[in-house]
Design a protein around this nucleic acid. Structure first.
Lengths: 108, 108
DNA sequence: ACAGTATATGATTGAATAGTCATATAGTCA
DNA sequence: TGACTATATGACTATTCAATCATATACTGT
C-alpha cells in the first residue's frame, strides 16, 4: 500500500527543479539577478564564472523556466523567471542556519 | 564588484541541501514519513525501494539532518528531522504545477 | 553460543554532469 | 562585404553518484 500522495511524474518534476538549484554557481547567478536583469557579461563579472561555463548554467536555468532571456543588440539579458525560488532559498537558508547554530551549541 | 549577499559557504550549504532533495527516491521517503515515523522495512513497502538502496538514501537524508533515527529492538525508525522540507516541497509543487498549466495553455 | 531477522556498508559499475577549449552563431558597425 | 563583440554549443575529461551485490553488523530469542 504505497502512500501515493505524490505521483511519480510530480516527484520527478520536483526533484528536477531541486537538481537545478543544487549547484552553487547557479544559485550565485540567481542571486545576482535578484535586483534585476543582467546581460551575460555582467553576470560573468558578478559571479566570476567564465563565459562558456556561465552560458551552460544559464541554459540549465532557462530550460527549467527559472530565468527568461531577452536579446538586446549584441547582449542577451537574463531575468528571474520564477520569483518563488527566493522563497525556497530563504527557507533553506533559515534551516541551514538554525542547523549550524544547533551544531555549534552541541560543542559547548 | 561581486554582489556578495551570500557567502560561498552559505551557497555551498544551500546547494548541498537542494542536492539531497534532488532525488525522487528521497522525496518519496520524506513523503512517506509525513504522517509519522516508520522503520526501514515499512519504508521499503511504502516506496518500493530495495533494502540496500533505501538504506543508502536514508544515510544521505540523515547526514543532512533531514531525518533522525531511533533504534527499537531489531528495527530502526526514521522520523522527519526538519519539517521545513514540506514547505519547500509545497512551494516547488506549486511552481511546477503552475508552470505545467502555462505550458498546457501555450498549446491551445 | 547459535540461528534468524533487520539494517548498514564495502566494492563495483554505469550514467549524468560540471568545467574547459575551440569553434560556431548572432548581431553591430564601418 | 569584412572586422569585431557577445553568446552559444560540440567535443572531451574528470568527477560525482545512484543502483546493485555480497557481506558485515546489530539485535532477538532459544
Amino acid at each position: 500500500m504505497k502512500g501515493r500522495r505524490l505521483t511519480p511524474a510530480m516527484l520527478a518534476a520536483v526533484a528536477a527543479r531541486f537538481k537545478v538549484l543544487s549547484e552553487p554557481a547557479r544559485l550565485q547567478v540567481l542571486d545576482a539577478l535578484r535586483e534585476g536583469p543582467l546581460h551575460v557579461s555582467a553576470l560573468m563579472e558578478a559571479t566570476g564564472l567564465n563565459q562558456a561555463n556561465l552560458s551552460r548554467h544559464l541554459g540549465v536555468l532557462h530550460a527549467e523556466g527559472l530565468v527568461s532571456r531577452r536579446r538586446e543588440g549584441l547582449f542577451v539579458f537574463y531575468t528571474i523567471g520564477d520569483r518563488s525560488v527566493f522563497g525556497l532559498c530563504d527557507l533553506v537558508c533559515g534551516a541551514v542556519e538554525s542547523r549550524a547554530r544547533r551544531a555549534a551549541l552541541a560543542f559547548r
